[in-house]
Design a protein around this nucleic acid. Structure first.
Lengths: 212, 212, 212, 212
DNA sequence: GATGAATGAGAATTCATTCAT
DNA sequence: GATGAATGAATTCTCATTCAT
């Protein structure tokens, strides 16, 4: 797994224990630095210092700053795609499943918040990196769209899917960037409530009551 | 108005007709360049070339690249804040008002898409520019939160407000960056439908029928 | 002329007096630095220092070290091509013309020795720069070949032309790089003598006597 | 022989079979890489990869990139010096000997073309490597000069020797770098013809006829 | 003997900003 | 008001060489 995450130069070599450790240090340092300073403000020098290694070594593992970011991003993207596939079927009586799934989403988001935040920052749609983010949104939408089609034939599934994906993503984003002081669990349940109501029209009150 | 939008240096001077025109050219060029290349990749040189003027002149009107962006952004922010204040009261029987408002939002978003997109890109929370974006989200949330509190006491107003704001923003973003080929009007009505149902639980079908 | 010699970036702009001077300084500095340290060992920094200007300025006129060299080389190549065209017709009784032409060649070679030397050093045939050198040799050979065909039908004109061109070039090279302490004039006359004999077989002695 | 060619570090050690093979692989790889990319563009990494060995090993046999080149060059230089000594005496009736010798020169040149080409490229007169090339030219010139002095008292022997050496070297260079599509044998005979005529004035036609 | 890993001193290049006319 | 020219700090990336196993 760490192997797969390696950047271009490292992918053509086998890594021994030492190299493995260095690679790991670099990845971690990258995550930290990107998180604190943002993609554009991040300097290779910062990463190198954080990883307590040298410039030369950096380029032994990654061909550029972007390459490092890609390595981090692809890894996250993969987990995300996996989660998208596990989105439960939507049914009036299965609000709980959605809630659980949203909680899992939040966990994943929180764990990878740093990379995801960077994503958004780096996201210019026609760049290589933007693609990754865009593809991911598409993937989520597609899965959700399928569920919606089955569950709520009166809603335009594509648009609604996109809207809900946006809602979920941004809510997590706002919460994780501390723009709102709310625990993730509360957010998950409010989201579940609102989405469920939005689809099945049970009325917010009902779900809330049910949730208690 | 153009005056208010001007960057720091220009605010201390009177602008005659010629200066006025140069300023306008720079602002427009800025919008274009930021839109096409993104904030970070945009070069003062690009702006200057697009405006058919010189570097020296640029700094006669703006103190920096960021200053130019701020000038563009503040203008947009203002319109947005204004729109936020005009968010209609929420009530089960007034779904139409929401729909109308969402359509207006979309118009504004589409018109200023370039600046807003750049915003998201430049948005690192602790930068000066990030503030503007964050403040705006807060403003929208506050307004929506007030309405929600009054209309749906069973939902956590703050979280739900944030969720809906996120939904609205992202939906517009996805549509405007062509990640989904959907006309803005359709998006507005689906959004209205889903939000209304999410709050009042009338069921999606009902709103849709009503909308026709 | 100086304009034509400018590197890529400068060719798209008009240069005012000041820029003109800077450009000239850079070209001269380039010639000197290339001459003293050789193409590969030359640093942009050296050039910049010699021209008493800054790195930034350098890249305002040339897109790279290679670009600067090209600018210098093309200029020389042009003079050379011109000279090649003026190669006199070969005839037994016109040894003097050849002698005169060889002296002119030597003058030109000496004046541009630095660039030409660099040429040889940089000359890897399949590089852009190598082309220039190769083309030049071809040009000389072609001209000489034509003359030989007319004057000495028994010699393979192409090979002989190439041989003589090589002889002339190397002789000048050796002399100019001080590998042999010989005044250019003497070299020119010996060359004339040997070439003339090689073509018309008058015997070396004869020409030498004639030369006195 | 391989031993003598080894670089500094290897000369202080005894090489067993394995080491012997590694050394050979490195030398061969060096020749190839220098040939394809040229001295300056050649990377130790390229050599190491071509030799299927490691950086560490490289420095077990050669103290530097230059050391490797020297090892290759000295070997060639030696053969060349040897050939220079075997230059036949020049006499009107012994044109054939010269022809034979030129053919041998061409063989040697062709076989070592890669190193020789590199030579020319690396040749900055005041570098260690330049010396080797320069010395070699001097050696050839000296030998030829002696022969000329004896055979053609009317020609300045030193200059003419240099001129002929240049002619021979460049002709081979042009032919070997494919700047002219001529078989080596033809070149040798044309060179013989022209040189002979240049010295003895038999006239080109005569020699050519004689050659047949 | 051999090797993968690490190093760090350069080198080229960019670009926001200031200067002089 | 406008502009061409100049600046130089900052940054990325390279690669010969050394180190530790």
């Amino acid at each position: 797994m760490a192997d797969r995450r390696a950047g271009a130069p490292a992918r053509n070599r086998e890594l021994r224990a030492r190299g493995q450790r260095t690679l790991e240090r670099l990845l971690e340092a990258g995550a930290t630095v990107f998180a604190t300073r943002g993609y554009h403000a991040a300097r290779v020098d910062d990463v190198v210092k954080a990883a307590k290694t040298s410039h030369g070594t950096f380029y032994l593992y990654f061909s550029s700053k972007e390459d490092l970011f890609q390595a981090l991003a692809l890894d996250v993207a993969e987990s995300m795609v996996q989660l998208a596939r596990e989105l439960p079927d939507l049914a009036p009586e299965r609000a709980g499943d959605l809630h659980v799934w949203l909680a899992r989403f939040h966990d994943l988001y929180a764990r990878h918040r740093v990379v995801i935040r960077t994503w958004t920052e780096a996201e210019i749609v026609d760049s290589d990196m933007g693609r990754v983010g865009g593809d991911l949104v598409a993937q989520f939408s597609r899965e959700l769209s399928k569920r919606l089609e089955a569950a709520a034939p009166d809603i335009d599934p594509e648009i609604a899917a996109l809207a809900f994906v946006g809602m979920i993503e941004r809510s997590n984003y706002y919460v994780e960037s501390n723009q709102v002081p709310v625990p993730g669990t509360e957010m998950a349940s409010t989201l579940a409530q609102v989405i469920h109501a939005g689809i099945f029209g049970t009325g917010a009150a009902g779900v809330k009551a049910e949730g208690r």
